[in-house]
């Protein structure tokens, strides 16, 4: 772990590969439906079990960007794994930068889908920092941190979706 004398570069190198935590979420119909409405989808598939079945789904599926939001509504305390890592490597790197000011930006977002997320799913997410680096741009220091969460079906262990996001701190 970096001490106060460690350079920012060392801090960033040190968080690559570190886990950001494990979480379990339940995918519920009401919240999926609200989310589909909020992203202005007009598809009946997100509302109607019959429409979902007619389209070949075993249950109502969730919109594409749902995995970014699903921890908000479906991460119930009593189902969380007990092996949560101590400390958050994202904050290890960003905390000292934010203390000095600047702006945190969501730079990029990517989802790789192995199968659709379905209402009724219980998903296990394992997060890792996959990259962290700095570069100078127009006289400003930009810090990039790439974080990845692999969501799998908690019952079968099969991969469901991988979510990858890129945070930028602009000094």
């Amino acid at each position: 772990m970096a001490d106060g004398a460690a350079s920012q570069e060392e801090v960033l190198k040190g968080i690559i590969g570190q886990p950001t935590g494990t979480s379990k979420v339940v995918v519920e119909r009401g919240t999926v439906q609200h989310f589909a409405d909020a992203v202005l989808s007009t598809s009946p598939i997100y509302h109607s079990p019959d429409a979902a079945e007619a389209a070949g789904f075993d249950a109502i599926p969730a919109p594409l960007t749902w995995p970014f939001a699903m921890e908000f509504s479906g991460k119930f305390d009593e189902i969380q794994p007990n092996d949560a890592p101590k400390g958050n490597p994202l904050m290890t790197a960003l905390g000292p930068l934010m203390a000095k000011g600047g702006l945190i930006l969501h730079g990029e977002q990517e989802f790789i889908y192995h199968r659709p997320v379905l209402v009724g799913d219980v998903l296990l997410g394992e997060g890792t920092i996959t990259d962290a680096y700095q570069k100078e741009s127009k006289g400003r220091t930009m810090t990039f941190i790439v974080s990845e969460t692999k969501w799998s079906d908690d019952t079968t262990g099969e991969p469901v979706v991988t979510a990858r996001f890129n945070l930028i701190h602009r000094a």
């Binding site: 598809s43 594409l64 990029e108 977002q109 990517e110 659709p116």
Partner: peptide, 20 residues
């Protein structure tokens, strides 16, 4: 994403990536 699934069909997207 809603425009994307309206076109290719819900459940068929295997990857979706954007830069903000």
């Amino acid at each position: 994403g809603s425009a994307l699934t309206d076109y290719v069909g819900v459940g068929n997207v295997t990857r979706y990536q954007v830069r903000f």
